[in-house]
Amino acid sequence: MSSTPNPTFDAVLAAAKAGDSIAFEQLYRMLNRRVASFAAARRAADPEGVVNDVFIRVFKNLPTFEGDQDRFIGWVFQIARNRLIDETRHRQRRVDELLLAEQPTTQALVAVDDEALSQIESERLLGQLDCLTDDQRDVVLLRVVADQSLEVVAASLDKSVGAIKSIQRRAIRTLAREFEEIVPEAVSR
């Protein structure tokens, strides 16, 4: 995402703040898919519901928002992130699902459909991010899944760009170290 000023976005944002439903729709179209991807990667039980809740909050508080495009997108993902944190805190029944996802390769499954396989693979990938902290995970997901810039991620986590760079560096190193534990064992032989 470009951090340069966008007059078109500014006009749309101003119209949306004035209550124009068409401008609301444009903002929704711009971000709804990426918010849904981020919610799904954060293991949201209902990613589409999260998207609707996020944008309801965005449109309700839009008159009080001040900032450019990057700050607005960051503000949207900040709302989404807080929404997902609240959901995680109240999620107890997913423990069994996580336990099931941890041992897919060792369990002998009699009949599994494609959707279940896809879900298992997704859980495997997300499981590799469990070694990261919450901020490192969110930075990686915002950069990779939501495809956002450093400025947007900084606005989402309410941190500086330098801090975000440091966080993502540590995240990559941690992930690499996890993979290196497998590779060094092969190299040392």
Binding site: R29, A36, S37, F38, E48, E121, L125, L141, V144, V145
Partner: peptide, 12 residues
Amino acid sequence: GLRERFEASTDV
């Protein structure tokens, strides 16, 4: 893998 699995193709 993260990009392929979680990238949304349609509007919510």
